[in-house]
């Protein structure tokens, strides 16, 4: 039994400690905004925050947590979709299929928290999520728009 702090709430997890956080979040906690895309930390669809840092949850075993960490998923980024990144994404109609976007938004929001003035070079070096629809042009515009809303 491990106690986890997810989106500001304490939840009990008594499953397999080898299970990646992605599956604990999706199946044990029932929050499906965090997506499975590759299982090997390549695509970033499973990106969440652990203590504010972007983490690819598909390869992060629950047992690696101490329990004190603050875990944030897309469901907990804001109460009503009002995070500056979500607002910028809505204004620019960034998503196409949208499947990668929860992970993209989590990666971008972590970047802007760490580096509110992120440049194009910072974006290129930090945002490595895959989007097969190819929303990158609007993602970039969205990041710069979100900076103004921070």
């Amino acid at each position: 039994m491990i106690e986890l702090n997810v989106n500001g709430k304490t939840v009990k997890y008594d499953g397999d400690e080898d299970k990646p956080l992605l599956w604990a979040i999706r199946e044990d906690l029932g929050m499906t905004g965090t997506k499975y895309g590759c299982g090997i930390s390549q695509c970033g669809a499973c990106t969440i925050h652990i203590d504010g840092q972007a983490v690819r949850s598909c390869t992060y075993p629950v047992g690696a947590l101490e329990g004190s960490e603050k875990i944030t998923t897309i469901e907990g980024l804001s109460e009503d979709g009002s995070h500056p990144v979500q607002q910028a994404w809505a204004e620019l109609d960034v998503p196409q299929c949208g499947f990668c976007q929860p992970g993209m938004i989590m990666a971008v929001s972590a970047l802007l928290k760490e580096n509110p003035g992120a440049t194009d070079e910072d974006i290129d070096a930090t945002i490595t999520n895959i989007c097969r629809c190819g929303t990158f042009a609007r993602v970039r515009k969205g990041i710069h728009l979100a900076k103004k809303k921070l």
Partner: peptide
């Protein structure tokens, strides 16, 4: 603007991967 954007930004939109039914197995 697209009709389906808002739910794509909060994780609320259910894709096939996210379908949940009572008593469902994987």
């Amino acid at each position: 603007l697209r009709l389906d954007t808002a739910e794509k930004l909060t994780g609320a939109l259910k894709y096939g991967q996210d379908v949940e039914l009572d008593g469902m197995l994987m």
